[in-house]
């Protein structure tokens, strides 16, 4: 009996360790955060969070519209291709819709059989268009190159909440705060001063599904969309992960009983 107790306490020790690792390691791995006066982003509930998290298709489609009409004016998202828009686990546009969306852009292709570059309408295999041919051109036009948005939701601490907060966080600079011309003040940007002007205003993007197009709603939708561009396989990951977990728990159970049987002649 005493042995059993020891046995159990050791096991709980291991379990506690595993739990500590699951909770503690991410904390350890998270740096102190950008130095200075970073404000903790607004925390929202997102449908893609949690074990069963999935994307909200309507939010993704609205988010794409916001991305296309607002963000894409200055930002690229080079890793995303039009065909991704019809892949499972994304906005899931139909093939026809994607072909039409892609055909709206002009792609420089070539060289053709005469060695010349030529222009053609976009196809589903093409990347999202970049507003500038390269970073230097972007910097020359805007003062600084805007970051590529493909994986931006994973490239900032507390990514999605930060992006949302940034988009809704534009305010007037506090009394006495020297703001150079051309710069904006944002509550959530580390250091508060950034070159990106306030991108969203109420009613800016027409929503076809009748959702109120407030700044908050558009910020939420486009953030949802950018999470998808960063993690297009999230739904597959969650689904497979759940199956793997069930399997491993069952396997552990089997192994536990088999092991007890094996050891039963030793105690």
């Amino acid at each position: 009996m005493k042995n059993k107790m020891i046995d159990i306490s050791r096991k709980t020790g291991l379990l506690a360790l595993a739990a500590a690792a699951a909770i503690g390691l991410p904390l350890l791995a998270t740096p102190a955060g950008a130095a200075g006066d970073a404000v903790k982003p607004i925390q929202l509930d997102w449908s893609f969070e949690g074990v069963f998290g999935v994307y909200d298709r309507d939010a993704l489609r609205r988010g794409y519209k916001v991305y296309k009409e607002v963000c894409a004016v200055c930002h690229s998202a080079e890793l995303v291709r039009f065909r991704n828009l019809m892949e499972p686990g994304g906005p899931e546009f139909t093939e026809g819709q994607v072909k039409a969306l892609a055909a709206d852009i002009v792609v420089v292709d070539g060289p053709d059989d005469r060695g010349e570059m030529f222009e053609r309408p976009g196809e589903p295999k093409d990347r999202f268009p970049s507003p500038y041919p390269n970073d230097q051109a972007a910097a020359a036009a805007m003062g600084a190159a805007a970051p590529d948005l493909s994986v931006i939701a994973k490239a900032r601490p507390d990514g999605v909440n930060y992006l949302y907060s940034l988009l809704v966080g534009y305010t007037d600079a506090p009394e006495g705060f020297e703001l150079l011309p051309g710069l904006s003040y944002n509550t959530y940007f580390p250091g508060h001063v950034l070159a990106m002007p306030r991108p969203l205003s109420d009613g800016q993007v027409e929503y076809e599904d009748g959702t109120p197009n407030t700044v908050e709603q558009m910020a939420k939708d486009v953030t949802h969309f950018l999470m998808w561009t960063a993690e297009p396989k999230l739904e597959q990951r969650h689904r497979l992960g759940f199956q793997v977990m069930i399997y491993l728990v069952l396997l552990s159970g089997f192994l536990w009983f088999a092991m007890r049987k094996v050891w039963s002649d030793q105690h």
Partner: peptide, 8 residues
């Protein structure tokens, strides 16, 4: 198997 649960 227990370790793989943490891993997964």
């Amino acid at each position: 198997a227990i370790f793989m649960i943490l891993f997964s």
